[in-house]
Simulated assay, not measured.
Amino acid sequence: MSQGARRWLFLFALIALTGLTLALSMWVGARTIDLSEVWRVMRHPDGSEEAYIVTEMRAPRALLALLVGAALGVAGALIQALTRNPLADTGILGVGAGSSFAVVVGVAFFGMNSLSQYLWFSFTGAVTVTVVVYALGSVGSLGATPVRLTLVGVALGALLAGFTSAITMLHPNSFDDLLRWSAGSLAGRGWSTLEVVWIPIAVGLALALVAGRPLNAVALGDDVAKSLGAGVVRTRVLVIVAVTLLAGTAAAAAGPIGFVGLMVPHVVRWFTGPDQRWIIPFSALGAALLLLASDVVGRVVLAPKELEVGIVTAFIGAPVLIALARRKNVSAL
């Protein structure tokens, strides 16, 4: 089968599976509602309990899962391309650590107790840490090389993780409400959360698509990229801004969710090849499907209780990561 045919087949499979999983997410939960009833209340919402469950609880949660999944998948693909490291994810720039640290500071010292407050603190932390990482990585004549950005990001992330643990231990009673967020959760998110996060995620996805073509050149090395006319510095800044918007907003909305941005681009590259113009949109679709499916599994595996989506993705991602490590040739960037 040709590369083009494989891409189209993969696209149709992703779309079909996403539609099926979206229907399942409307149907299953602590209370199962017949699909015919789901269809009825979505077309003609009334004041019934079923209509409230479907339109005010499950629908925004499913859409948020699609948005957050797409953001994490694309952010992971961008980081892997930028650092030329096939096992990199957004944590390599300290984005997740920055989000967590800011939320913990807000809870411990500013009395935050609502999701809307978490959102803004988390996003501010992600942006601040990314700016600091890029500023420190740019010091010197070599500028912000992938290796320097990686080293600074990992070091700063480890430092912030230590501060986060220390603050949490000093104020244990303040963090009961933060447990779900720190595990990676979509529970309790409504339309108000979607209204806040869809714009920065949409902007981040648009910037990622723009960066696809120059990233192909940057992946060949700085000297080759410059000879091909690609703006290396401009591309790096564009990618870092996109990653900050995507990963920061995703962490703010759902907490730190691991493995999605790491494993989805690998699976995508098996079907699309190393071209970032294909990897980026396919990573968005694949990661959206993965997170939505993980949320559905988390709702039914311990019903009527729920397993947080971040825990489900960890159960899925760990064996996939081991399988990737055992491959003789990790998928090419």
Results as ranks from 00 to 15, higher is better:
152 V>W: 02
111 G>W: 09
237 V>F: 08
37 E>V: 02
55 T>G: 12
281 P>H: 03
192 S>E: 14
323 A>P: 05
235 T>G: 02
203 V>G: 10
97 A>T: 12
127 V>W: 09
5 A>K: 14
102 A>I: 15
319 P>C: 11
210 V>A: 09
144 A>C: 00
318 A>T: 06
185 S>A: 11
119 L>K: 01
285 L>P: 03
301 V>C: 05
40 R>W: 12
154 V>S: 04
214 P>D: 02
299 R>D: 00
160 L>R: 01
240 I>L: 14
319 P>A: 06
54 V>P: 07
60 P>E: 04
167 I>D: 10
173 N>R: 04
54 V>A: 08
49 E>S: 13
191 W>S: 12
123 F>L: 14
58 R>M: 05
300 V>T: 15
206 A>Q: 00
233 V>W: 11
127 V>T: 15
33 I>Y: 00
100 S>Q: 08
224 V>T: 13
117 Q>A: 15
29 G>H: 02
130 T>Q: 06
163 F>G: 09
215 L>R: 02
307 L>R: 06
115 L>M: 15
185 S>L: 07
102 A>Y: 10
165 S>T: 13
78 L>S: 04
114 S>H: 03
286 G>D: 05
158 A>Y: 02
283 S>P: 07
223 D>H: 06
129 V>R: 04
155 A>Q: 07
1 M>W: 07
179 L>Y: 13
305 K>G: 14
143 G>S: 11
5 A>M: 14
228 L>C: 11
110 F>S: 12
